[in-house]
Measured scan of single mutants.
Amino acid sequence: EPELVFKVRVRTKDGRELEIEVSAEDLEKLLEALPDIEEVEIEEVEP
Rank of each mutant, 00 (worst) to 15 (best):
A33Y: 09
K13C: 14
E43Y: 15
I20V: 08
F6Q: 01
P2N: 08
S23F: 06
A33R: 09
L31K: 04
L27P: 00
E46T: 12
E38T: 08
V10D: 00
R11S: 03
D26E: 10
E1M: 12
E21N: 07
K29G: 05
D26K: 06
T12A: 04
D26W: 07
D36K: 03
E46A: 11
V40C: 12
E44R: 14
K13F: 04
E44S: 11
E19S: 09
P35V: 15
I20L: 10
I37G: 07
R11P: 03
D26S: 05
L18H: 06
L30S: 01
R9I: 08
D26F: 08
F6R: 02
S23H: 07
I37D: 06
K13S: 07
V40M: 11
V45K: 08
L31V: 02
F6A: 01
E43K: 11
L30N: 01
E32P: 02
D26T: 05
K29R: 09
I42P: 02
E46F: 14
G15W: 01
E1Q: 14
G15D: 01
K7F: 04
E39M: 14
V5M: 13
I37S: 07
E17K: 08
V10I: 13
L31Q: 02
E25P: 08
V45F: 07
L4A: 07
I42F: 07
E17P: 01
E39F: 15
D14V: 01
V45P: 04
S23M: 06
F6Y: 12
D36R: 04
R9L: 07
V40A: 06
R9T: 07
E39I: 15
A33N: 12
I42L: 05
V8C: 05
P47H: 10
L4F: 07
V5Q: 05
E41H: 13
E17A: 05
E25M: 12
E28T: 09
F6E: 00
E25W: 11
E19P: 01
F6D: 00
V8H: 00
E1S: 14
D36I: 03
D14P: 00
E1V: 12
P35M: 15
E17D: 06
E21T: 14
V22Q: 00
D26V: 05
E1C: 09
E17C: 13
S23C: 06
E46V: 13
E28N: 08
E21C: 13
R11A: 02
R11I: 09
S23P: 06
E46Q: 14
V5N: 07
V22T: 02
D36M: 05
L27I: 06
P35T: 14
I42K: 03
E21M: 15
E3P: 14
L34E: 03
I42D: 02
E25Y: 10
D36Q: 07
R9P: 01
E1F: 12
V22L: 07
E44T: 10
E19A: 05
I42M: 05
E21K: 09
K29H: 05
L31M: 06
V22W: 01
A24E: 05
I20Y: 15
K7D: 00
R11Y: 06
I37Y: 14
L27W: 04
R9W: 06
E41W: 15
V8D: 00
E1L: 13
E17W: 15
D26A: 09
L27V: 04
V10N: 00
I42A: 03
E44M: 15
V45Y: 09
E28F: 10
R16W: 10
E46R: 14
S23V: 04
E46I: 14
T12S: 03
L18V: 07
R9K: 10
E43L: 15
E32S: 10
R16N: 06
V8Q: 00
K13R: 08
D14S: 05
V10W: 14
P2L: 09
T12L: 15
A24Y: 09
I37V: 12
L27N: 00
F6S: 01
D36L: 04
F6P: 00
E28H: 11
E28R: 13
E21F: 15
T12G: 04
K7W: 06
V10E: 00
S23D: 03
V5C: 11
V45T: 08
E32L: 12
P47V: 10
E25L: 11
E1A: 11
L34V: 05
G15E: 01
E41S: 12
P47L: 10
E41V: 13
I42Y: 06
E17R: 08
E19V: 14
T12Y: 15
V40D: 02
F6M: 04
V8Y: 02
R16P: 01
D14H: 03
E41T: 14
D14Q: 03
E43S: 11
L34F: 12
P2D: 06
E3Y: 12
K13I: 04
L27T: 00
R9S: 03
A33G: 11
E17L: 15
V8T: 00
K13A: 06
I37R: 05
I37E: 04
E39T: 13
K29S: 07
R11T: 09
E38V: 13
A24I: 08
P47I: 11
E41L: 13
